[in-house]
């Protein structure tokens, strides 16, 4: 699996198709995360922005390999494992982006509540931010895995559903990603840190299920 991920990462990096989502993330972060913005608020917003970027990265990664070379890797390692490696590669990429985003957020944000009266403890806030970012990266990965090859083949359907799926998961109340982000943003008003443990665990389960479904279908519809 490690060899496959190395290969997929080399293909993804060389293809330069990762550039648009990464640029989008960097631009949004630059615009939204201003200097001295309240820490918890910034953490919540940066986590939310990671979700569509993760979904987009999955879309790029599962389609990065041309059919002919995918047949070669699939014969060597099995189509399910090849698909899993491409989803994992995208998830790793999204996680790296998330880590960079967190470092940026922590270094520029103001560790106070939104009204500036209550001090926010930085370490618990960062833990909450990591959990929220993980939940969003995992949900984005799940959306990307469900809305692209091999489950959805037509580009129109795949792009539309990836976008809509990422948006819905973010805004519909009741979705764990939404709950994680909201917990941080509302906590920012009072300066209370709500680490979204439940959302992180739930999103891990959802991402695992979605990826497993996509991987079993990789050989049936590959």
């Amino acid at each position: 699996m490690i060899a496959l991920i190395h290969y997929q990462a080399a293909v993804l990096m060389g293809s330069q198709r990762w550039l648009p989502p990464v640029l989008l993330y960097v631009t949004l972060m630059g615009v939204v995360i201003q200097w001295d913005r309240p820490l918890l608020d910034s953490l919540g917003v940066s986590a939310a922005m990671l979700l569509p970027v993760a979904a987009w990265l999955v879309r790029i990664s599962v389609g990065a390999e041309p059919t002919s070379s995918r047949q070669c890797t699939a014969a060597a390692a099995g189509p399910g494992r090849v698909h899993l490696s491409s989803v994992l590669t995208a998830y790793i990429g999204a996680s790296l982006l998330g880590v960079a985003g967190l470092v940026y957020v922590v270094s520029v944000s103001d560790p106070h509540s939104s009204e500036g009266q209550v001090n926010v403890p930085v370490f618990p806030a960062v833990v909450a931010g990591v959990l929220a970012s993980s939940a969003c990266a995992l949900f984005g990965t799940a959306v990307g895995a469900l809305c692209n090859r091999p489950l959805l083949r037509s580009t129109a359907w795949a792009v539309t559903s990836t976008l809509l799926g990422a948006l819905l998961v973010l805004v519909v109340s009741g979705s764990p990603a939404n709950a994680a982000v909201r917990g941080l943003v509302t906590g920012s008003h009072t300066g209370t840190v709500n680490p979204p443990w439940g959302s992180a665990v739930l999103s891990l389960a959802v991402a695992a299920l979605a990826t497993a479904l996509a991987c079993t279908q990789a050989s049936r519809r590959g």
Binding site: V11, G14, S15, P66, S68, Q71, C72, A74, A76
Partner: peptide, 11 residues
């Protein structure tokens, strides 16, 4: 496996 065409546009 060796596919019949291998115009792999890989970087």
């Amino acid at each position: 496996f060796v596919p019949e065409r291998f115009p792999a546009a890989l970087p």
